[in-house]
Amino acid sequence: MRRAWYWISQQGLSTQSFYKTSGRLLPFITAGFLVLFLYGLIAGLFFAPADYQQGDGFRIIYVHVPSAFAAMAIYFCMTICAVLTLVWRIKIASLCLTASTSLGAGFTFLALVTGSIWGKPMWGTWWIWDARLTSVLILFFIYGGLIALQSIIANKQHRDRAVSLMTLVGAINLPIIHYSVIWWSTLHQGATLSLFSESLIAPAMLRPLLAMIAAFMLFYGMIVCLRMRNTILVTDMKTEWVKKVLQ
């Protein structure tokens, strides 16, 4: 058992094997992203029925919900990477962590902006200090702090561990965001999608939404893989296998 674990941490999770595996997977991820994204976009914008209250205005859901989902899912993924970095010092986990921060910040920003654009016609205001909005704004600030931290520390090991620790501390915000609509029921509506019970949305509207969520996550996976591969090539430049790859 211990031997198997040792092999996984040394060989299975080495930068070289990650480079190989991700290279094989990337075309599929990209294709999946393109198919789902185009389907979600076209079906969501043209074929899904208009909402009986909001009219066509509700269609911003196809950008807003996926980006908000991605913002939180990326942070969750970063938290796992942070544990792997701090406890087992797995190299590709720290690579994934540092590659994810700016993407997460981008999706959070997108969620805030699209929410704001949605809020103006439906709620009558661009912004309100509602619990959900505030906690997502805090998430955006936390991402900002992490990016600042990782850009300022020069030593790579020091940087990875410091960012990991801060990521773990910030993870306390995730349950707060999730339960904010239940604990403080102010303006933002509760969850529409649920894993364990029937979703509160018509199937014709739901399918493009799920496709968009999956597309956003695949996009994240694609970009993170590309970034990690790039960093691996730079840091392992002196090794034989990189020289072979670059020839």
Partner: peptide
Amino acid sequence: PILILPFYIP
């Protein structure tokens, strides 16, 4: 401040 202020908000 950038790192810590988000946690001061609650």
